[in-house]
Design a protein around this nucleic acid. Structure first.
Lengths: 262, 262
DNA sequence: GTATGTGAAAAGCTTCACAGCG
DNA sequence: CGCTGTGAAGCTTTTCACATAC
């Protein structure tokens, strides 16, 4: 995450738009900005201020401006940002103009739902193959796709030039699936199976663990309860709404609400 | 996110174990440590070194030690950590001994899968109620629970003292559902619907957006491609494995793999 | 006048490296 | 001697506040 600068841009002075190296925290927020922008575009807005977009995305405006400044200067002082232009720029940076092929491994409870998840298709991702190790599931049709056996995963993933593999198998088989995906040339994996995947450094893994999310919330419940239940009673009230300037709209647990990843 | 200090600990000098205020980043990793510890316990290990546990959880050992040091000193120098003791301590801190009641709103594709997700039950969370606004779904039985109408959400959630509400509705109704949950006294929400929820400051929200995860991966695909495909060819190789010290095992996109929250 | 873009300060998090304990 | 616990250093991210441009 720090290859080329930009400004003292080495090489590539001509056609190719030098790839800016954005902070990870910024990258994780761009999709949320994009969603907010699409929403604004639907309501007919042509421009939006950093204040307005920040509110729609649930972040503060200084952060938003700094994030966008990393992409280049696409705002107009005294006016705001051009919605359509910004949509285009963010989609370009995120590589969403590429219509990437996704495959999904593990068609259990969760995998089944993911296979039918409209949010994927509506954002430039095509689910092109489904796999499962269970012979009973192989052959089943879900959302227009036939479930194939994981034995064929490596071959088919390579043939279809899959860009992103989604793992929704039980934990025990996740590593083997990841290995097969990687062997087929996949370099991005979204992992729903609990546990850590071991992958070479050029492969990006993102993990979503639903139980972990609940456990984090449980911690906060525990914390709130332990403050409220204090004997004496007065500490409860104090703690419950300390942080006076903080009564902002729409956020709470900080490392989240916008930007899951991280 | 910053109510009580600790150190100049007010009140509570006796029985109640003053609640340590852990860094958010640490909290987000505790569940992963816990999973790794359970796994170790199953294999019969009684103690584990920071090195060993760190590897199992996909973090580096210094980070792990610092995280655990926030809970207190539960390790033995020269030996390591007692697995059972550490499991107990982490479960206590996370409040997992409380068997919290969870309700799930929106039994569509994804909600249906979540209702049957074994990972919830196996971690001290009881799904006690399902809701949907669609009359066709009300009355349906999923995993032993009858789907109820969202009109009754507020009343039932209050009656059942729901601790955590999971929202898996379409984006348009998520805010209304959140409002109803909050009115019923729910102070923790896990939101799968795209978009930002507006909640009072005492309510914690965590968000999981599957499309955002894919978009972040798409960015990294785009970045990798733009480095590899550079004309001249040599810059490609250089960029592809810059960051020499980074060839670590089992991780990649940093803000993630362990600790989604983020 | 208004809102962006950005240096500089502050806060938060990670890594280092080693003192200290078992 | 090995491994934890932890100050201190280094890095990333957020926030502030204002010069700059429209």
């Amino acid at each position: 995450m720090s290859q080329q600068r930009h400004g003292s841009t080495p090489g590539e002075a001509d056609g190719v738009p030098a790839f800016p190296d954005l902070p990870e925290a910024t990258i994780a927020r761009l999709p949320e900005y994009l969603r907010a922008l699409h929403h604004l575009a639907e309501t007919g807005a042509e421009t939006v201020s950093s204040e307005g977009l920040a509110a729609a995305a649930g972040v503060n405006s200084a952060k938003l401006r700094k994030d966008l400044s990393h992409l280049g200067s696409y705002g107009t002082r005294g006016v705001g940002y051009d919605v359509a232009l910004l949509v285009y720029q963010i989609e370009y940076i995120l590589g969403l103009d590429k219509n990437r092929a996704v495959c999904l491994v593990g068609v259990g409870n969760l995998g089944h739902a993911l296979a039918g998840y409209a949010g994927f298709a509506s954002r430039g991702f095509r689910v092109v193959a489904l796999f499962d190790a269970d012979p009973k599931k192989v052959g089943e049709e879900i959302n227009g796709l036939i479930v194939q056996h994981t034995d064929d995963l490596e071959r088919i993933a390579a043939e279809e030039s899959i860009a992103i593999g989604v793992i929704a198998t039980p934990p025990g088989t996740a590593q083997a699936v990841a290995d097969a995906l990687i062997a087929a040339g996949v370099t991005s994996i979204l992992n729903f199976a609990p546990g850590v995947l071991s992958v070479p450094p050029n492969v990006d893994v993102r993990k979503v663990d639903l139980a972990i999310e609940l456990q984090i919330l449980s911690f906060h419940e525990h914390r709130k309860a332990s403050l409220t239940a204090l004997p004496g009673g007065r500490a409860a009230a104090v703690a419950a709404d300390a942080a006076p300037g903080k009564a902002a709209p729409g956020n709470a647990v900080p490392g989240n609400q916008e930007a899951v990843g991280s």
